[in-house]
Design a protein around this nucleic acid. Structure first.
Length: 583
RNA sequence: GGUCCCGUAGUCCAAUGGAUAGGACGAUGGCCUCCGAAGCCGUAGGUACAGGUUCGAUUCCUGUCGGGACUACCA
């Protein structure tokens, strides 16, 4: 049980004895340590409901409150109940946490199955920086959910069946450079895509030809299918390399193509059931008048002052299906085959309208009990504050960005690292470079746009991944200097210095923080917590000598060091970030 | 036009409706004969504007201003 849960339970009991009924009495970590460790506003809220004096109620509750073995409580301001946790309580918590393989993280997701849909790049186009948000955010959320006991299924729903294949197939047939394809397949595929894209923009006939190539592919044309297969194989190699570097993996790679055979029957069924109908040659799903407010209806849009239909198209007038069709089929598959309770779509915020429609359709086809979430995120900007682009106008490729990050890290490693061999230095630079990119992503609120500033990311000081890693490295270093091994399981810590109490305070909060990340799918809450913990640890390192202390104090502090490094490592792992032993 | 997201120090980013709005970078003053200075301890500087709800608003509501996204045969 976390300290918050313990306090809430005791506070609720006190309220019950005063009010004669059970009430919710939420407790939160104090925003300001001057007021205590934890606080509750329950007396103010409950006094308001009962039209009584909040301070008087709080005083009665505190009188009835049993905090034996935890600490003390007092009243402040208009009726805050502030809790002060005793150092002995923190010491006992640290000992228990040290003995717990879960480090105090509760199991909150048992029995629930969630599919996390993230990354999902378009095949045959190299991943660009825009893909790091979905990839890193989604991977972290999957790791966190798994840690909390959910059954997690990760699925890379790659775009391997859409319009771009019509374009690439057209370009493949009209100007493939075989030599270039052998030398650098990804580059040649990109060139083909650009060539088709530009031609189609300028020429209606090309646009039409590309559309027809896609229709042929989706209808099973042998030649187009062969071209498609080669594109997939070539792209997959490049994608695997990037995912390896990022330490991201998927349980499944069920792209759009996996659902091709179920699209036509799906559309027929929806039409037969009256859920979809023909419109301007296409098959669409329209508003059914739910909800009643047209502004809240994702199938309506205001045009020229009037609410008009904005249907979800599931078959184009040329007979081809699009991603809306695939998404419905995919959702049904995940429910039917994987029995998922929830689906989290980690996708750019620009697609929010699409997901509103998808989720509304899910209701209508009997999937209304599923917990469906569009976990949206903002745009990555260049240092000029505009969406990131290279000089040529394209988005920088993800592989290039990672290379740059690692190169910058290598420079720093060469200047100040304590590792010995060239091999270790290279591995360290790779780890630090990738970590810095990942941590920057995860430390931001997912909805905010942020500036992609490589220099700042790799500043290696302040709120960065290396700051956290350095904290761990210092902890581990102390153990290397220890003359003989100490059995920490036999140690009961004794906390006297402010710095060590403060460190223990933050260690105890780990199990409270991790579950809250999934309230709104925000790993940045964990990133913030880890920075605070690392700050507490660095201050502790300055204020409290370990190896020179007398044995009892030394062992107590060794336990804190070991626990701190384990919590930091565990937390970083939830963010998908590794930790070096030395740096 | 409509819908959604976002406006927090010079810059970047935090803050389940709570108390004197935190942290980083940059600026600036200290700290390595002391377990790792990628660090620690100081100083200076901020909620776009106007209303409303509330005991209490950065947070919720309305409006204004500013930025961005979306607005059926792209994904």
């Amino acid at each position: 049980m976390t300290l918050i849960q313990e306090l809430e339970s005791r506070l609720a009991a006190a309220f019950e004895s005063v009010l004669g009924e059970r009430v919710a009495a939420p407790v939160v970590a104090a925003a300001d340590l001057r007021f205590g460790d934890y606080q509750s506003n329950a007396a103010m809220a409950l006094a308001k409901q009962r039209k009584t004096n909040p301070r008087a109620l709080a005083e009665q509750v505190i009188a009835a409150l049993d905090l034996a073995g935890i600490g003390s409580a007092d009243i402040a301001g208009p009726g805050f109940i502030n809790f002060k946790i005793a150092p002995e309580t923190y010491a006992a918590r640290a000992k228990a946490q040290h003995a717990d393989p879960r480090l105090g993280v509760p199991v909150t997701g048992a029995g629930r199955t969630v599919v996390v849909d993230f990354s999902a790049p378009n095949v045959a186009k190299p991943m660009h920086v825009g893909h790091i948000r979905s990839t890193i955010l989604g991977d972290s959320l999957a790791r966190i959910a798994r840690c909390l006991g959910y059954t997690v299924i990760t699925d890379n729903h790659i775009g391997d069946w859409g319009t771009q294949f019509g374009m690439i197939t057209w370009a493949w047939k009209n100007g493939l450079n075989e030599q270039a394809l052998l030398e650098n397949p990804l580059q040649e595929l990109l060139r083909l895509y650009r060539h088709a894209s530009e031609s189609a923009k300028a020429d209606e006939a090309v646009r039409e030809a590309c559309r027809m190539e896609l229709v042929k592919l989706q209808q099973g044309d042998a030649e187009n299918f062969e071209i498609w297969q080669r594109c997939i194989e070539l792209s997959r190699t490049g994608l695997d390399r990037i995912y390896d570097r990022l330490d991201v993996s998927f349980d499944h790679w069920l792209g759009e193509s996996a659902y091709n055979d179920s699209l036509a029957p799906l559309v027929d069924r929806l039409v037969a059931e009256g859920l979809a109908r023909e419109s301007e040659g296409a098959i669409c799903i329209f508003s059914n008048g739910v909800p009643e407010d047209p502004a809240k209806d994702p199938f309506l849009i205001k045009k020229d002052g009037e609410w008009t239909d904005f249907p979800m198209m599931i078959r184009k007038s040329d007979g081809a299906f699009n991603y809306a069709t695939t998404d419905i089929a995919t959702l049904e598959f995940r429910r039917r085959e994987w029995k998922v309770d929830a689906a989290w779509y980690v996708v750019d915020h620009r697609q929010s309208l699409h997901f509103q429609q998808l989720f509304a359709v899910a209701e209508r086809i009997g999937l209304g009990d599923m917990d469906l979430r569009h976990i949206a995120f903002g745009t990555i900007l260049g240092t000029d504050g505009k969406p990131l682009k290279t000089r040529s106008g394209d988005l920088p490729q993800l592989a290039d960005v990672l290379d740059e990050a690692v190169a910058a890290a290598a420079t720093a490693v060469a200047e100040r690292s304590r590792v010995d061999t060239e091999e270790e230095r290279a591995a360290l630079a790779e780890l630090i470079g990738i970590s810095a990119v990942k941590f920057t992503e995860l430390a931001h609120h997912r909805l905010s746009d942020y500036v992609f500033d490589l220099d700042k990311m790799l500043a290696l000081q302040g709120d960065t991944a290396p700051y956290l890693q350095y904290s761990v490295v210092r902890c581990r270093s102390i153990f290397r200097k220890l003359e003989e091994a100490v059995d920490l399981s036999a140690v009961t810590p004794v906390l006297s210095e402010d710095a060590e109490i403060h460190l223990a305070r933050f260690l105890a909060r780990y199990g409270e923080v991790v579950p809250t990340i999934l309230d709104d799918h925000r790993p940045n809450l964990l990133a913030n917590y880890l920075l605070e913990l690392a700050r507490a640890n660095h201050s502790f390192n300055e204020a409290c000598p370990v190896l020179k202390a007398e044995v009892a104090v030394r062992d107590s502090r060794l336990l804190l060091c070991d626990l701190t490094s384990r919590v930091l490592t565990h937390g970083l792992a939830l963010l998908g970030i590794g930790c070096p032993e030395k740096m």
